[in-house]
Design a protein around this nucleic acid. Sequence first.
DNA 1: ATTGATTGGGCTAGTCTTAGACCATTGATG
DNA 2: CATCAATGGTCTAAGACTAGCCCAATCAAT
Lengths: 241, 241
Amino acid sequence: MDESARLMTVLRPVRAGNAFEETVERLLQAIKLGLVAQGEKLPPERELAVRLGISRVTLREAIRALSDAGYLDVRRGRYGGAFVTYAPPEPDAGHLREAVNEMGMADLSDALTFRLAVECGAAQVLAMSRPGQEQRAVLVRRLADVNEAGLEDYRRLDTAFHLSIAELTGSPLLATTCADARSRVSDLLNAIPMLQVNLDHAAVQHQAIVDAILAGDPDAARRAVAEHLEGTAALLRAFLA
Amino acid sequence: MDESARLMTVLRPVRAGNAFEETVERLLQAIKLGLVAQGEKLPPERELAVRLGISRVTLREAIRALSDAGYLDVRRGRYGGAFVTYAPPEPDAGHLREAVNEMGMADLSDALTFRLAVECGAAQVLAMSRPGQEQRAVLVRRLADVNEAGLEDYRRLDTAFHLSIAELTGSPLLATTCADARSRVSDLLNAIPMLQVNLDHAAVQHQAIVDAILAGDPDAARRAVAEHLEGTAALLRAFLA
DNA sequence: ATTGATTGGGCTAGTCTTAGACCATTGATG
DNA sequence: CATCAATGGTCTAAGACTAGCCCAATCAAT
């Protein structure tokens, strides 16, 4: 934990891969977070390439790879586009072990710690900021969405709820960081079976988070998020054992 | 705050610039955070290029730019290297306004919010983790370093103290995120005059942070960090007005 | 003074990436 | 059924980036 260790932290690779690989990751993030739901399509290639700051050629390579991997269905012509075909796999301990083996235990622990820190931080900041009527309404709406969701939409709307907390702080940096943190564990979360007991428990914890934020109580918000995420982490560990 | 807004969050540019620009930013981060102090030198080009995952040509362009801008002094031959010549400018309201104008008020607010969230999150996580003897010793050591620092070393050791909290959580993701958050405001912080009153105040707050972490009290840790950073933000605002 | 190891300086051939133009397909609409 | 706008498919020339190699400078050790 000396200076040289800190130097290593900052002098890490400038780029996580080539443009193609990074683009695949980014699109996969949008898909797995449910930002483009099954049946919907990505923006047109020309527009998307501009948004991502890459050439159309590179974007098309990435889309081709995701299409080959079964995440997208690309259709030509007017009203065509790259349609999302991905549906999260059925919860299963095998998938979970597979996902954990792919990332390694160290990275798993890193990802869970990271998520805990940034989501607690976001909730706390939002609670401190005394959100206005409009923001409160969005938060309550997202909570209701999760509670009304069927099993198919649950993960997606749960993600939307969690991300909206960071978004409502008004900090784009915080929003993208929370999205990043969430996407690092999304495959793991998808592997956890959705038992009614757990969903009920989660609903209570979600309510506690919203209550604390609406009450402007950062300590309670922090605690509620920590409890919720620790609960999820415990489920993961139990399911792994 | 609807789905399309969330999509924009994720479908942002894949790369923040070309390899040259990103490399300049990264080196500047290491320099401004004081990870390579004045008079010290960067690792040799060949080694650094590997660490940063770029070619030596691109690295050399970046070093050249920083050398031209007065941050580095490059010397050839054995025992040569790229020596850091940068010293933070004297605190001054002019510098501050300049820095703020460069980044814009929206980005400033974003950066401050971001830092508040991630540093509070890190402190909370560390407090929850019940750090071992060795970690506690590092934390106490860093605190002592700040308190014993002269005016010249204060900023650098203050940075080291703050970053060590994130590092001690054992999460590389969290450590790099906190380093990123800090570097986004370092120019602003450098512009604040170091009055003894403020330093004394900061010392008390630093102590409160360490006490809370050592006591394993995440709420107190969160509160202490929030108070400390809010104090800094208040100084900034006051100095801007 | 000579040597040798270490480090920055520079060149070249090849690959990755981009910008922009043009082609092909689709399906709603008149 | 012909049209047309939106969208994916393809090609090319130019620029960005890389890997690998060799040169030049410096200075401690001998």
